[in-house]
Design a binder for these strands. Structure first.
Lengths: 355, 355
DNA sequence: TCGAGAGCGTGAAAGCTTTCAAATTTTGAA
DNA sequence: TTCAAAATTTGAAAGCTTTCACGCTCTCGA
């Protein structure tokens, strides 16, 4: 592989000039410029990213730390970030933490010496990201936190409007006539779980409803959690007529528990998820859900990070993306036998048919 | 951030000694060794991966090029590779090609100058990987090709036993009594599609059956493709009593088309997919499928690649992973009204219930 | 025609590590 | 105690690029 020295030789110019042509760091007169470019073309020369990074104290690497790419929510986030990174000439390094704080630290430590320009993180459980990324920021790397925020986070961030999304979903269910509404939240040490719960509570309060004892269940963001907590909920008296699951995995587990109890969704019980994953279209009934765009989340984060690489001192930004309530087949008015049954006025939206 | 020079100063030794202690490249007597280690500990020194890579002509980076992380098959592959890479001290750089040959080339070009130790690729459509990775191999990087192979591939590879998997699935359906069997293959320029079709054909031939005209449909590996081709198949006379879809996305599309035609799966028509994605458990009926482990695929590839980094001249290896037929609710004997109906002797396996 | 200043181009230093030949110290035997 | 051999340790070079101070060459005005 050719190096800059060889290009300089072939073009009959100095090393510095080659660098200036390649980086546009100084004006170079056309004839020289052309000779350099020709030499580059002839040899197929590509600058060493390592030497470049070593000299500039920064590489064209964008690092991304997420809980687990196997969770269907995250591939979209990663893809959004990779697309933006690729367009701007950056490569994406992907790290999974399994929500394990110590693994997050290991990744953070190991990545540092690659001098990434940017770092996008979905904090693990109990993350101390604010402290742990201090050294990155000191080294001039852009750190962006997404999806959920760690304690005391004061840097750039991209999140969604969790509270609003949950509020809308709950309000919709209430509008259908539901009164005995249950909620299954994700781990409440996570800010997104907290916010979704807040939105749910606000909708309840606004309609003068209260959450019956035991109607609020906290669990992990997965099917097993949703399954277990729904089993508990279904045994309660009165049985809830609607459940808001704070993500789709929980909702999926809930659906299984409902089916297993020989109940029917939505006739016996309504169910609404959160995230709007593709697979909510594949269940039967198709799952209603508060949609958010993981792709947009990742893309916005990458843009934010790479913007900051250029504009080091622009003010901190907190981007909040919108959610969209997608009503499908898993919600309906409460069963008629319920004493609180009432005619609904809420519109029944259907998602477009697949074609 | 401290550098080696500072460590050498603090420990009162030379640069070379620090390097030897850190890399175990030469014996260093205990007292010196300890002084170096102490200095490292005190300063929190971490060697620069860039300078190291520059000097050694190789970094601890494992690059991975896949079609699209949004396709539910690939996250498992990526995770398998990342886990192995992480364990061995490597970082994973992820690139999506969207099956676009030119994008594959762009990634290949851009990655080269980071000097990755290994490169794991799922070739894009019409990939010329054999030629395009020549420079990598010359530079000493380990290139491993997985899932499907490009033309003339003679390097390391990890694939699954596609033909055998399809053969088993087809044989099972035949054993249930099906005679009018259709197959929807993926793009036939891909080796995995070719092999799955071969397996299907072998099973048919072995039972003295033939594929009726139009009963073999080729399409893309996605829902839309499966949907479109199934619509065509359902209009044929006689209508097939069973369809082998050559991946789960196709099967999902097929299921939609079947539902839309007001037919019932499996009573009217049996359906079997390929890959065994998680979401095959979430459809109704739950989809039978030829399972393969994407995680294992990725993990084996990473191990193969990193092994080769150490053992540069060991013989080329082709790892072929096993598939496993998972029978769930989407298959049954053909409808009684069919003239060819017959009592089946094939066992009906059920997957374990979710718990 | 001369001088100043603008515009360009140059070469060396710096960034950090690995590696190798050479220098130094230690060891063991006489 | 001395010397050769073995074991350690050292220092400099190399790997490739960016950047900066400096010098050269025009250009333009006087």
């Amino acid at each position: 592989m050719a190096n800059m020295k060889k290009i300089a030789e072939i073009a009959g110019v100095s090393l510095g000039t080659v660098s200036h042509v390649l980086n546009g760091t100084a004006k170079v007169r056309e004839p020289l410029r052309k000779r350099v470019l020709d030499a580059v073309h002839v040899t197929g020369y590509q600058p060493s990213q390592l030497a470049r990074g070593l000299r500039r104290d920064k590489t064209n690497i964008l690092a991304m730390i997420i809980p687990d790419i196997l969770n269907p929510f995250f591939p979209g986030v990663v893809r959004g970030a990779e697309d933006v990174a690729f367009t701007k000439g950056y490569r994406l390094v992907l790290c999974n933490t399994d929500n394990d704080h110590s693994k997050e630290i290991m990744h953070l430590n190991a990545l540092r010496t690659y001098l990434p320009s940017g770092l996008i993180v979905i904090p693990s459980d109990f993350s101390e990201l604010t402290v742990q990324t201090e050294s990155y920021r000191r080294a001039g790397a852009a750190v962006v936190c997404i999806d959920r925020l760690p304690r005391n986070w004061d840097g750039d961030s991209v999140t969604i409007n969790n509270a609003e999304g949950a509020y809308e979903a709950a309000s919709y269910l209430i509008g259908l006539g539901h009164r005995e509404m249950a909620v299954i939240t994700g781990p409440l040490h996570l800010t997104n779980s907290q916010d979704r719960l807040k939105g749910f509570k606000r909708a309840m309060k606004q309609s003068g409803l209260e959450i019956l004892p035991g109607y609020m269940q906290e669990t992990t963001f997965d099917r097993a959690g949703g399954y277990a907590k729904t089993k508990i909920l279904l045994k309660m008296l009165p049985r809830p007529t609607a459940i808001l699951a704070c993500n789709d995995m929980i909702a999926l587990g809930a659906l299984m528990a409902i089916r297993e109890a020989r109940l029917h969704c939505p006739d016996d019980i309504s169910l609404c998820g959160f995230d709007g994953l593709d697979l909510t279209e594949m269940t039967s009934p198709q799952l209603s859900s508060v949609y958010q765009s993981p792709y947009q989340l990742g893309a916005a984060a990458a843009e934010l990070a790479l913007d900051r690489v250029e504009q080091k001192n622009s003010p901190v930004r907190h981007i909040v993306l919108k959610t969209e309530l997608r009503i499908r087949d898993s919600v309906a008015p409460p069963p008629k036998s319920e004493k609180n049954a009432q005619k609904t006025t809420a519109p029944k939206l259907r998602s477009a048919a697949y074609s």
